[in-house]
Amino acid sequence: MDLDIFEFYDKMEQSNIMLSFKGEITSDLLTSILQIMEAKLDNFEEKSKTKKRVYNVLVECLQNLYHHVDEVAPVDDRSKRARTAIFMIGKDEEMYNIMTGNYIITKNIPPLTEKMDRINKMDKDQLKALYKEILNNDSFSEKGGGGLGLVDIARRTGQKLGYNFKLIDDEYSFFSLDIKISHIN
């Protein structure tokens, strides 16, 4: 394996990464990550408000991964790769930074982009109205998604959703999401 571990370490150190994971996303894994992060947030002695915000956003980000790796069919070799995801959390002087990456089906990019762009254009009151509208809509998905997760993240963080898509082939793309949460106010 042609992999320089120090290079990995150094990059993560420079980006102030405190926890990262790459692999299959299971319910038990999420429980463990959340426990570790809760202990870390306690250690940092964050204000209760900040701690709760980071924790809530973390839950939404991780559960987005959990629910959406399912959509990429786990049949052949390629989709086995597609079931895994990456997650990282870092902290600098002003912000917590939560980054996730997972495969998605390429044809699902346009509606997702449209949704995120729409959210990114909204102010606090518009996000609140959209949240309530989706919440009170009976056609909410079985998985509990319905796009409420991203609206909730935008509402809690007050920041734009950062995102990127990398085209892998005709069928698959890699979706990365970059969320920032202030810990200074």
């Binding site: 709760k52 839950v59 998604g145």
Partner: peptide
């Protein structure tokens, strides 16, 4: 203390 968006609907 916390609830996720999946619970919010429930």
């Amino acid at each position: 203390e916390y609830f996720n968006t999946s619970s919010s609907k429930c």
